[in-house]
Computed example of a mutant assay.
Amino acid sequence: MDFKKYKTFQVVADTLNLTRAADLLGYSQPTISLQVQSLENELGVSLLGRSGKKTFLTPAGKLVKHYVDQTFALMEEMETELRKLEHPHGLLTVAAPEFYCTQYLSLILHSYISENPNVKLQLFSCDSNDAMKKVASNEADLAIIAGPCDSPLMETMPLGKEDLVLVATSELLARHELSELLERYPFITYKSGSNIQRLVNECLQEYGFTPDKYIACVSDETIKRTVMYNTGIALLGAGLVEEELRKGTLAEIHRFPGKIETNMVMLKKRLAEQNIRSFAEIVQRVWKEWD
């Protein structure tokens, strides 16, 4: 199949003017005429007709033009997709809990865009469970999550581990004995069924503490703010409360070393995609520097 002849016919069919087509393609008019005639002989049909000085498409010409347009459109789409394999391009969507978005991903996104200016990034702030669901449904290309991912469809890349810290405000601890504080005030925690809630339950069991009263929140930041208002106690990642512990606003009751495993997850079938692979490489590199 001589694509050159089909391309020539497409331009002629678009312009219906041999002189104009010759200018657009950089050929002489006789060359244009020969290529169209050769295609007509090859297909065994007449593609163009003339009425006075006007050129028109025959019924066969209209049919061939329809399929030629589709063919070249598909070829352009194929070339575009092939370029994406060579260089990151287009939209990349990342899902992660609010803490990771504010503390880590802002810097990573800046580094990624600096290296890959043709990629448009979109960030979803949601809990780890919802982040994994977005990846599974292709609403997100990858996710940063707290805790494990058990899905056999997902590729999990460990990024690091973080302590969980049982905290209350220093003011509450100063006013109450620890036993009274644990008994009297509610435990502020994540909504039931969330990924990190399983880790929290393990820590509470290890500590021998079974709260009678709970307040369920949707994000780390909401839990921390609720604690800061002297509402109760909570188990939070050390990174989230590091500054408050240093300033003495919050007090550490107990620490559970390395309990939160931070992971990056993506669908196994999409691992070869250049956007995902390039972003994952930068995340792993930057995270290692932080550790």
Results as ranks from 00 to 15, higher is better:
Lys54Cys: 07
Lys62Thr: 09
Lys133Gln: 06
Cys126Asn: 05
Val227His: 00
Ile276Arg: 00
Lys161Met: 12
Val167Phe: 01
Arg277Met: 00
Leu107Ser: 14
Ile260Ala: 06
Phe72Glu: 10
Asp130Trp: 02
Gln70Pro: 02
Val265Asn: 01
Asp220Lys: 08
Gly147His: 13
Glu79Ala: 12
Pro117Ser: 08
Met78Trp: 08
Leu57Asp: 04
Asn230Ala: 11
Ser114Asn: 04
Ala96Cys: 13
Val165Gly: 00
Glu79Thr: 12
Tyr112Thr: 10
Thr156Trp: 02
Ser179Lys: 15
Thr71Trp: 05
Glu242Val: 06
Lys224Asp: 01
Thr93Cys: 03
Ser219Trp: 02
Arg83Val: 08
Phe56Ile: 13
Tyr104Asn: 12
Glu76His: 09
Arg198Phe: 01
Thr58Asp: 00
Ala143Pro: 11
Ala272Phe: 02
Asp220Ala: 12
Lys191Gln: 06
His254Phe: 08
Cys217Glu: 14
Ala60Ser: 14
Phe3Leu: 13
Thr249Asn: 02
Leu48Ala: 06
Thr169Trp: 01
Lys133Gly: 05
Val165Ser: 01
Phe3Thr: 14
Tyr67Cys: 05
Asp220Glu: 07
Pro97Leu: 09
Pro186Val: 12
Met154Glu: 07
Asp130Glu: 06
Val135Glu: 03
Asp69Lys: 13
Glu202Ile: 13
Leu39Asp: 07
Ala146Ile: 13
Gly258Thr: 12
Ala216His: 15
Ser151Gln: 07
Gly49Pro: 08
Glu242Ala: 15
Leu121Tyr: 05
Glu180Met: 09
Ser51Val: 14
Asp23Pro: 04
Leu105Lys: 11
Arg246Leu: 08
Tyr207Leu: 10
Ser128Met: 07
Met228Tyr: 02
Asn195Glu: 12
Ser125Arg: 08
Leu172Gln: 09
Thr102Lys: 14
Thr71Cys: 06
Gln70Glu: 14
Pro30Asp: 05
His66Trp: 02
Thr19Ala: 04
Glu79Ser: 11
Thr8Gly: 03
Phe3Trp: 04
Ala140Gln: 03
Leu91Thr: 14
Arg198Val: 14
Gly44Val: 12
Glu86Asn: 13
Thr262Leu: 03
Glu98Lys: 07
His66Leu: 10
Pro257Gly: 04
Glu171Leu: 13
Leu181Ile: 14
Asp163Leu: 06
Glu155Ala: 10
Ser38Gly: 09
Leu182Thr: 11
Phe279Arg: 09
Ile260Asn: 05
Lys213Val: 08
Lys7Thr: 02
Glu183Met: 04
Glu162Pro: 10
Glu221Trp: 06
Pro152Ser: 13
Thr8Val: 05
Val165Ala: 02
Glu252Asp: 09
Met75Gly: 09
Glu261His: 06
Phe124Gly: 10
Thr15Ser: 01
Tyr214Asn: 14
Lys4Glu: 04
Arg285Tyr: 06
Ile113Met: 00
